[in-house]
Design a binder for these strands. Structure first.
Lengths: 360, 360
DNA sequence: TTGAAAGCGCTAACAA
DNA sequence: TTGTTAGCGCTTTCAA
């Protein structure tokens, strides 16, 4: 069978309904002035012809496509999968579509943004990668809001939403200290990203307040991946002269999980008996039986909501606010990888209760 | 600062470059006839004005948007995350963009497709949900290919790519038999989906060939999720009069993982000593130390490649082929959740070697 | 409330 | 190889 290529246009519908083409347009535009019976006739004709309004054509005049570009870096980190899900759910609810771009983590996102711009997207959400100031200003010149998710770029005009990473790092340090840890190590993520840097900073800062010397806190890069963290952990613990650390901070959950698996199954370490481990993000996987990871929860829902607010999708003519940095509070979730000190028993019990059903 | 809303058009570029507007169009159209020096002038002017061609406008005449709609159901299953990644990588390589829609697993995808149609997408990839024949014919009428990924719908005009699920189910049965299992159980997925049905069918079929009676194969629904499978497994093993099965088939990896975790950590079962477990998909998580899941590998790369081929993106006028069902071969990956019989030692060693680095 | 008509930014004949 | 011109399918004045 051949393609009929029969896409009915508003003119076809108008002809069938016996009205003008503009009437058809009005019938499909909420809040435009058209008589109810006429609208009904149009809708009926449209149904008969399988007419679907052409958003591409309408955006040519309205200057709005209702498309948002979502630029994703590391999809291998489940955190971003949940972020994508949440954005998708909400944006669809707002009648917006998502044009997706995946870029290599750590690489420039300029290319992706440029391609997005060709599609006259109404906004850009960037969850990854670097952003040049040139690209930022190109977007802003055109009135296209661009907001960074889970990161900020110092000195950038782009606004961003993230959680309080420094505070979160402190929470983990606090938990380790309360559990009696004496020597510390961490597996870090992208060294160029503020997210990893801030978590490290908060963690170190808090430890130093208790008299721990920076040189005593071991640090090894885990490349933000499960496997990277697994080898990092092994290199940290395998053969060593100095005493093993008794507390390990994985800068994100997926790395903490990689470290836990490697340490347990390759080196036979018991957690938390031999080593306590803390993570960051609180991805759903962190609750699972093999991990029961004590971690810092990022308020994804809130972060997504604030991101959308920052874009002001329904006020397209509003001047774009520059360089807003919106840090949201994070909180510690006590689970099984850090021994729970008496003072935190209640919090731990609460977390355990909340963990019962995994949403998904 | 206010929005300048200054999007340069091809006319602006033409004026600055001192050429006609069509020259600008040509300068940006690969393979169109334009003098090299003229093109250079145009490009230079474009750069100065931060001009980005408006694909939305061009698609009005070309009838091609280079946008593909990707409709995703269960994003909580990592399998689909990897699928998304692969589609994104390849489609971006082909100069196509992905408009993403997430729908509730099991629900109609008609809504999403209708919204996609408004954007004049060049094709639809459906990884989830039901598809009405009405929607199929609407797409086909318009010359828009729609291809089902990892599923087929009996009697549907839509084409699809999937793996040989029946054969895969047989492979797991085969492995269980070779390992000496005598009693069997399975955790099933979406009862309306052919994917789950076929895997079950192959599994059962093979067992029955060996004289196992259908009524002896226990079956419990796991709702395609980690948590669903965890409770399913518990209900299967917790309190029971008849002897426990000694082999459990999780219709997909994420359910096999949920079952393993629950059985190990809640009931203290040892795997594979007390119970052997088989999965399906071979998601990257299946290789991880806590699981080392013996499973059936779906050839994602091939499936994605064939899906794209079926869409014939570069021959938009080609008649759409109807109802093609393309089953690709699947293969067993021996790991640690099924005791490896001597005959399969080599295969198991090979799998272990291949597992070393996780891509990601 | 309605219809006619002028664009939106581009591509694609067509002539030059 | 060029420029001119006529649309693509819609929204949006503007008059009626």
């Amino acid at each position: 069978m051949k393609r009929t290529k029969s896409r009915a246009t508003s003119f076809d519908v108008a002809a069938l309904a016996g009205v003008s083409q503009s009437a058809v347009s009005r019938a499909f535009t909420p809040g435009s002035s058209i008589a109810e019976d006429k609208r009904a006739k149009v809708l009926e004709a449209a149904r008969m012809l399988n007419y679907v309004p052409n958003s591409i054509a309408s955006s040519l005049t309205t200057k709005r496509t209702n498309i948002i570009a979502l630029i994703l870096g590391n999809m291998h980190n489940p955190f971003y999968v949940h972020v994508l899900n949440e954005f998708s759910r909400r944006l669809q609810g707002l009648g917006r579509q998502i044009l997706i771009f995946t870029v290599d983590p750590g690489s420039e996102s300029d290319d992706a943004i440029l391609r997005a711009l060709q599609y006259q997207i109404d906004g850009v959400i960037l969850t990854a990668a670097q952003l040049s100031t040139r690209m930022t200003s190109i977007c802003h010149e055109r009135g296209i809001p661009i907001v960074l998710f889970n990161r900020y770029i110092p000195g950038s005009d782009a606004s961003g939403v993230r959680c309080d990473n420094v505070g979160g790092g402190r929470l983990i340090a606090e938990a380790f200290l309360a559990a009696g840890a004496k020597s510390f190590a961490m597996i870090t993520g992208d060294p160029k990203g503020t997210t990893s840097q801030d978590r490290v900073r908060g963690f170190v800062e808090r430890l130093m307040e208790e008299g721990v010397r920076r040189s005593e806190i071991e640090e090894v890069p885990g490349h933000s991946s499960y496997d990277g963290a697994a080898s990092a952990a092994l290199s940290l613990f395998a053969a060593r002269s100095r005493p093993r650390p008794d507390a390990l901070f994985g800068i994100n959950d997926i790395m903490a999980m990689g470290a836990i698996d490697a340490l347990r199954h390759r080196l036979g370490l018991r957690i938390p008996d031999d080593l306590m481990v803390g993570g960051f993000d609180d991805i759903p996987e962190a609750r699972r039986a093999p991990y029961k990871l004590t971690t810092v929860r990022q308020p994804i829902d809130q972060m997504v909501a604030r991101t959308l607010e920052l874009m002001h999708l329904d006020e397209p003519d509003r001047p774009i606010e520059r360089g807003i940095d919106l840090p949201l509070p994070s909180r510690l979730v006590w689970r099984g990888t850090v021994p729970v000190p008496p003072a935190f028993r209640a919090a731990a019990a609460e977390a355990a209760a909340a963990d019962r059903p995994e949403s998904g």
